[in-house]
Design a protein around this nucleic acid. Structure first.
Ligand SMILES: [Zn+2]
Ligand SMILES: [Zn+2]
Ligand SMILES: [Zn+2]
Ligand SMILES: [Zn+2]
Lengths: 132, 132
DNA sequence: ATAAGAATGTTATGATATTACATCAATTGC
DNA sequence: GCAATTGATGTAATATCATAACATTCTTAT
């Protein structure tokens, strides 16, 4: 994995915005937060996000069209990741499950399906929000 | 499950379009295909899709912003469904896995997370497309 | 120094989804 | 019957998310 030191200025700014955010951010929200840093157009954000995703430093949450900084940047190398997304407060938990990965892999093998990217996203209410 | 007979005209038209499609369709593609049936605005499509999803007759594929007719309208009642989506030909396979459901449920329980909707989508190449 | 490749800036456009408001139709309570 | 409620529909406008196209600047290898 590449360290943030190797990031370009724009990539570092976007990663920083995501890292300090309270939850997932949309590309346009990131853009707004980086106006003062010289950001002017969506493409600046999307380009940085693309690279950050390649580096495994950022994940895209498909079900809510938003992006989040990786919680374990050094841990997972290409393995399957699942997300639990609180629809109330935006908190995101990132986890892996060997068994889930194994079962989905088994299905794919049995059906001659060659996976390129797998998405697992659980939306709901986190501990804090569901107890309140 | 509600039979198509109980659907409104617009809902029936949208379901019919999806049922006869070669693969998942975007809302705007559906709109275009229903122009001759009097459809004029996106909302007509989105409203029908919303109801059809509630009835379990249609699924939304989050990772590709598209909709597909349920392959087993009588089978699954609120249980977890996984999708395998071919990025080449658009073919969608719909399946369930008890073990995956059990593992994700276990994680949720352990973390006091109350799930409302779970998405599992595997994108890749189907048997036909990966053998070619 | 120069050439090649990567990153950036800028504008415009495309694609997806919802808000707001008016109208129409079926149903219900009286 | 008839008003009141409810659900469905029509239409326009707008919001949100993402990419295309092209020019320019920066980095790096030779
Ligand atoms: Zn991660
Ligand atoms: Zn929460
Ligand atoms: Zn289904
Ligand atoms: Zn295929």
């Amino acid at each position: 994995m590449k360290a943030p030191a190797e990031l370009t200025k724009n990539q570092a700014l976007v990663l920083d915005a995501l890292s300090h955010a309270e939850g997932p951010l949309s590309a346009y929200t990131i853009l707004d937060r980086l106006r003062d840093d010289g950001f002017r157009a969506p493409l600046q954000v999307y380009r940085a996000l693309e690279k950050l995703q390649e580096l495994g430093l950022v994940h895209r949450l498909e079900s809510i069209n938003a992006f989040v900084a990786c919680a374990h940047p050094h841990d997972h190398h290409q393995e399957l990741i699942a997300f639990a997304i609180c629809e109330n407060c935006g908190k995101v938990d990132e986890f892996s499950d060997e068994m889930v990965e194994e079962r989905l892999g088994r299905w794919a093998k049995a059906h001659d399906f060659r996976p390129s990217k797998t998405t697992i996203e659980i939306r709901g209410a986190c501990r804090t929000c569901s107890s309140a």
